[in-house]
Amino acid sequence: MLRNKSVVFYGSTESRTPSIKDSIIGKFDEIIERLGILNVVRNKVVMIKTDLGYSSFISTIHPYIIGRIVKKIKDADGKVFVSDTLENYREAVYRGYTPEVIGCQIYPIAGIRDGYFYERYVDYKGLNILQLGGFCREADILLAISHIEGHNTAGFAGSIENIGLRCYTARTRYMIYKTMEWDKYFVREKCRNIKDMKNICPYNAINIVDDELRIDFRFCNQCMRCKIVDKNDCLNINRRNFESFFEAMAMAAKYVLEQYDEPNRFFINIALNMTEDCRYWGSITGNILPDLGILGSTDILALDKAT
């Protein structure tokens, strides 16, 4: 059976006139209208799963954009709240995310102790349980508004990363990253210069624990400097290590999507102020691309591919 083609709406930052309608905000409004979000929110609860930023990272979604869609949902007789991870929630106020500014309550996805969750049992490379943030089930409709930025492991952070990682407890996110260490990559018996491999890593991704070399794949940039000094072929970093992360994140994203009927899932990517590193580095690395605009779709995969 042939499947209907997915549609991705795009609004660029370019404008031909000084009118609001021709601005990026006007195009955001049009994407909201074309997606049909406001047609289904009446007497429903909407969770806006967004990126509240972290630490000193300020290149995130402007609170005005979130507040604008919050008002539209309320005007359409819907109820709405915003959610993100506990870490991001704690510091959201420093980036202007408050109920007074955006017009609705903000909740940590798994509660203020990261202990409000629902479990799904899985069996994948040491990942045994997905702890889904409880606030995912407080809503009838999912609206994921994601900030596009670089990501050491995922390549870039978009809608799939937004829900596949940040709809979960810190414990689950940690275990998703740990799947990259499941396939053996270091043979100690063959190694004669373990310290050289550690010292050459410019990202501090390599540590020595109990005389074993350990790579924190969250920080590994695949520069392969460690392999250059590996004289005995004791280190084997390959695609499979990194693909484990993608597979685990995809499993987690699928579980989030299962919480909502297909007509009640909407995704928007904000491709503005795109930095090299993601929010958890806690610093600003400068924009790596010009501002592109805003994209929206009801198909999360099509949206991230288009982005």
Score class of each variant (00 low, 15 high):
Pro263Lys: 10
Ala76Met: 02
Tyr185Met: 03
Ile61Asn: 05
Glu119Pro: 01
Ile112Leu: 11
Gly115His: 03
Ser146Thr: 03
Glu247Thr: 15
Gly150Arg: 08
Ile25Ser: 05
Tyr64Ile: 14
Trp281Gln: 10
Asn238Ile: 03
Asp29Glu: 08
Thr307Leu: 14
Asp77Gln: 12
Leu165Val: 05
Arg188Tyr: 04
Cys226Asn: 05
Gly164Lys: 04
Ala154His: 13
Glu87Arg: 14
Asp299Ser: 01
Leu303Tyr: 07
Gly296Ile: 00
Asp140His: 03
Asp84Cys: 11
Ile37Gln: 10
Tyr121Ala: 12
Gly286Arg: 10
Val229Cys: 07
Glu161Gly: 13
Ile194Trp: 05
Phe267Tyr: 09
Phe267Gly: 00
Pro99Lys: 03
Cys104Lys: 06
Lys71Arg: 12
Leu292Trp: 00
Asn236Pro: 01
Glu138Asp: 02
Pro263Ala: 01
Ile32Ala: 09
Tyr118Ser: 04
Tyr107Ala: 10
Ile106Arg: 06
Ala76His: 05
Lys305Asn: 15
Glu30Lys: 13
Leu35Gln: 02
Ile69Asp: 10
Glu149Arg: 12
Gly150Asp: 00
Asp75Gly: 05
Asp230Arg: 04
Arg265Glu: 04
Arg188Phe: 01
Ile69Met: 13
Leu86His: 13
Asp196Arg: 04
Asn221Gln: 11
Asn241Pro: 08
Glu91Met: 14
His151Ser: 03
Ile148Ala: 12
Arg42Asn: 13
Ile145Gly: 06
Tyr64Ser: 12
Tyr64His: 09
Thr275Gln: 15
Ile66Lys: 09
Ser283Ile: 15
Cys234Met: 05
Leu86Val: 14
Thr179Trp: 10
Met274Arg: 14
Gly134Trp: 12
Gln105Asp: 14
Gly78Glu: 01
Asp75Glu: 15
Leu132Tyr: 05
Thr85His: 02
Glu33Gln: 14
Ser244Trp: 10
Pro63Thr: 04
Ser146Phe: 02
Ile109Trp: 00
Trp281His: 13
Pro263Arg: 02
Asn193Asp: 08
Asp75Pro: 06
Ile294His: 06
Phe81Pro: 04
Thr13Met: 06
Gly286Ile: 09
Gly103Gln: 06
Leu295Tyr: 15
Asp261Arg: 15
Lys195Pro: 06
Arg120Tyr: 10
Thr172Tyr: 02
Phe219Trp: 14
Ile294Phe: 00
Glu189Phe: 14
Glu262Thr: 07
Glu189Arg: 14
Val209Phe: 12
Ser55Gly: 05
Glu181Val: 00
Lys231Tyr: 00
Met251Arg: 13
Arg265Thr: 02
Thr169Gln: 08
Ile237Arg: 15
